[in-house]
Simulated assay, not measured.
Amino acid sequence: MTLFGLVRHGQTEYNRQGLFQGSSDVPLNETGREQAHVALDTVPPVDWDLAMSSSLSRAEETARIIAEDHDIPVAGTEPRLVEIDWGAAEGNPVAEMEERYPGRAFPGRETTQSVVDRAAEALEDLAEQHPGKNVLVVAHGTLIRLLLSGVTGEHLPSIPNGTLSLIEVEGETWRVRMVAGDEVEFPAVTVPRDRSPRFALDDLHLRPQGLEPARD
């Protein structure tokens, strides 16, 4: 079994201003760096074997801060864990773009299922590479929430900056243990690897527009 700690990166100026951020490479602001320093302060301690992040700078810097504070080895980045690509909405105000494109049907945006599929694939590969280890992964709010929602079948709330969620992966079995710092107890979900897509949000009756936070 591999335990993954999924941390949402700290705040950026796009977050603060209410702009769609997605796959744009926006750095942390000072508040975001402070959030990184305290990200693990209010959750049960775990002996993390390694830390890694998505390849976007806000996640990479958050991981580096946490790793330095807690003496965790850094193992690089994983491009499949970058945030959803909002297409034409990126860099624009949330309210304006949602009014212009009902249902968030932004030109060029990535599908919800694509985000879940690549995130699940990345964690599966990391679980194979690090069996029995505790792996801290800094990623992004929408990606984390969609992945956890796909596993649990629940409409999970927005993931705040600098919070920790826990998910266990053992072979084809997945179990969510914590969501944004709150301990939970969801049943384990077994998904065969030859299933495509792995976690079908439509099969779980999850409405994509209901899963996405106001911005990320």
Rank of each mutant, 00 (worst) to 15 (best):
A36N: 07
Y101N: 07
V43L: 05
V169W: 00
G32Y: 09
G141L: 12
V169L: 11
E121R: 15
L166R: 14
V135S: 02
T152P: 03
Y14E: 09
T152H: 02
E168T: 14
E83R: 13
P102G: 06
R80D: 12
A120G: 13
D25F: 12
D202R: 06
P93F: 01
V176K: 00
P160C: 07
E128T: 05
A139E: 01
D49P: 10
P187L: 06
V74T: 04
S54I: 06
I66G: 00
T163D: 08
A89Q: 09
E30W: 05
D47C: 03
D25G: 13
G18A: 05
L3S: 10
D125A: 15
S55M: 09
R80S: 12
D47N: 12
F199D: 07
P73D: 07
T190C: 09
G210W: 06
R207E: 14
T142C: 12
P73V: 01
R58G: 12
H140T: 02
V184D: 02
D71L: 04
T42C: 01
F186D: 05
D203R: 14
G171Q: 11
H37W: 05
T2S: 14
E78V: 13
G162C: 03
Q209H: 15
L136E: 04
L148K: 00
F106E: 10
P93R: 01
G141S: 11
T112L: 08
V7G: 00
E30P: 01
G5I: 08
V38S: 12
E34R: 15
D117M: 08
H140S: 00
R104C: 02
V43S: 05
V116T: 10
P208Y: 05
F186Q: 05
E60F: 14
S165N: 13
D203S: 13
I65N: 10
A127R: 04
T77S: 14
A119I: 06
P79F: 09
A67Q: 07
P79Y: 10
G91L: 08
V7T: 02
T163A: 02
V94P: 00
P107I: 03
N134E: 14
L19H: 09
E154F: 08
V179P: 11
L156E: 06
T173L: 00
T62F: 11
R177T: 09
E185I: 03
S55V: 01
V115G: 06
M52Q: 04
A105C: 09
F106M: 10
L211P: 11
A88G: 01
R207I: 07
Q209P: 15
G10R: 04
W48R: 10
G18H: 10
L204T: 07
G10V: 09
E212N: 08
R8S: 08
S149V: 02
S23Y: 02
I84E: 01
S158C: 10
R118N: 06
E124L: 15
S24I: 06
L40I: 06
T163Y: 12
G150A: 07
S196F: 05
